[in-house]
Design a protein around this nucleic acid. Structure first.
Lengths: 329, 329
DNA sequence: ATTAAATGTGTAATCGGTTACATATGAGGT
DNA sequence: ACCTCATATGTAACCGATTACACATTTAAT
């Protein structure tokens, strides 16, 4: 790999001049600039980002922390972030936390040690946090944290809408799958839903779950139908869990949506491919990622006067695990 | 952030000694070592990885290139890699190529510029490649490339098995969804399948597809049933596409597996949650990731005498989109 | 014509580590 | 007592960039 010295020699100038051309600052004579650019081309020189980063204490890397890369919701967030930051010449480092707090600490440390320019975190273990005395800006995605910059969807409203749609469509004995206690987003959905059900005076039961994973989801589904075999409306904690519930319901021979209505949460790509296609509360994951990236870049550029807490809309996506509501209902 | 100089001052020694303690090399008196370790603790000093990397021309970062982070197969690979390399103190940078060649070039460049210690690539655009004159070792995952180190599953055998299982279970008019032409893995599956079908003298049709994405999968499914409405056995190019096909088949009122059998490819976590659960050819994604990581670490450590091309077994996972085979068949 | 400001370029310090080399001391061998 | 070698530690060069500062040359202004 050619270095800046090689380029300087080739162009017959000093390294300072090459650097000036590279960074487009300071004075450089037009002829000299051409010389340098030509030398760069001939040697196909690319600056060493590590050396740059050492001096500047800033890299072109942005760190992203995800709770679980296997949950399709998160790759979708990542895609949004990626598309946005690459336009600005940044690169993404993804750290997968696997819902484990020590991994989160490790990754934050790694990000620091590698001079990342900014961090976006979608992890959400309640309680302790290690984001306080970082030199690089942090955006909280799919969560909030004190009054730090954040992009999130309204989980409470989402839970409320889901419950309301289920009731509106005639479910009487509703079961809520309550997501992991340590995840704030899950609690929000749950709280929104029960608030609505209480207001509507509708009977409901709760199944507590402790993860969102594919492998465990089947377990909650079996538990649900074991305890509440005659439930006629289910609010799942997310779409993955909803898929498992639907699977179990169909296995038990229940008719969906006639005997049993089901609403998921997230609207992951797979949801429309289930059969019947899953009605769900959509979180605009890709756009949430984009917004978080935009917000982070504003913070990096030290811009001012912009909204630091962005709430994204959730919406009910009506597919076929819910019945049609009567027009005059 | 404390630097090595601060530690040296605090411990009353030179930076060289601190560095020796840090790296566990050279001679350090036991008492001195304790002094240094204490100073490190007091200042909660963490070495700057960027400075390290600049001198050593090696970082603790390993680069991973994925074709499409939204396809659940790839996060699974990533998880396997992650678990393995983190034990060795490395960190993962994931680059998502989005099936676009220029992005691949960009990421390789970024990896180089950031001194990654090794690269694992699961991209698979046929033809040109830019992996030739890299200083860091490269492992090809879910693909091969000349005789470079690689970890892959036997796509041809997978295609063969899938076809064989379908025939064995009585499908007569088989349709194959042929995956994207530019992906070697897809071609292998296809070739394996048609070889088997020809050998068995079974009639088949082909639908050509040009992506594995959720959004396009529905399109291929509709095209399939439009052109070949009486097909009674489908080999899907992967599980995502299989999900879409199943969705469409059920929508059309076909009975699975009685009227129509279906076999996917990959065995992504969602496959067992479909209803009926999807029969598929399993690739051991997590383990493939682990193996690739092990292989890479061996290359990094310049070990010798180990297998450089690792073929992983594929196997038929019998679920409920295929009929039971008669015991005396 | 004189001087201040703008332009153009190079030298060297710096970022935070690692390590080659120099130097010093003590132990063991003859 | 003398030499060798292992042990212990410090000084300074180095990795590849950026930039403060110095210096030289134009250009513009009075």
């Amino acid at each position: 790999m050619a270095t800046i010295k090689d380029v300087a020699k080739q162009a017959g100038v000093s390294v300072a001049t090459v650097s000036r051309v590279l960074n487009n600052n300071g004075y450089v004579h037009e002829n000299t600039r051409k010389l340098v650019i030509e030398a760069i081309g001939q040697l196909s020189y690319k600056p060493n980002e590590v050396a740059r980063s050492l001096f500047k204490k800033k890299s072109r890397l942005i760190g992203l922390l995800l709770p679980d890369i296997r949950n399709p919701f998160f790759p979708e967030l990542a895609r949004g972030i990626e598309d946005e930051i690459q336009e600005q010449g940044y690169q993404l480092i993804i750290g997968n936390i696997d819902e484990k707090y020590p991994k989160e600490i490790d990754y934050i440390q790694t990000f620091k040690q590698n001079n990342v320019t900014g961090i976006i975190t979608a992890t959400n273990l309640t309680g302790r946090s290690h984001y306080d005395n970082l030199s690089s800006p942090v955006v909280f995605l799919d969560r909030t944290f004190n009054d730090h910059p954040s992009v999130f969807a309204d989980g409470i409203e989402g839970g409320r809408i889901a419950a309301s749609e289920l009731v509106k469509r005639g479910s009487k004995r509703i079961t809520i799958l309550k997501g992991p206690a340590q995840l704030q987003t899950a609690q929000d959905r749950f709280n929104g839903a029960i608030a609505e059900l209480r207001a509507e005076n509708v009977d409901f039961s709760v199944i507590e779950t402790s993860s969102f994973s594919f492998s465990d989801a089947e377990m909650w589904a079996k538990e649900l139908f074991g305890k509440y075999p005659d439930t006629d409306g289910i609010l799942a904690s997310n779409d993955v869990v909803a898929a498992a519930v639907m699977h179990e319901a169909l296995r038990l021979g229940k008719a969906i949506p006639e005997d049993l209505q089901l609403i998921g949460f997230d609207d992951i790509p797979l949801s429309r491919l289930l059969f019947p296609p899953l009605s769900t509360i959509r979180q605009p994951a890709y756009d949430m990622g984009k917004e978080a990236a935009k917000l982070l870049i504003r913070l990096i550029n030290k811009e001012t006067h912009f909204e630091k807490n962005i709430q994204m809309p959730v919406m009910f996506i009506e597919r076929q695990t819910t019945r049609k509501v009567e027009k005059n209902g």
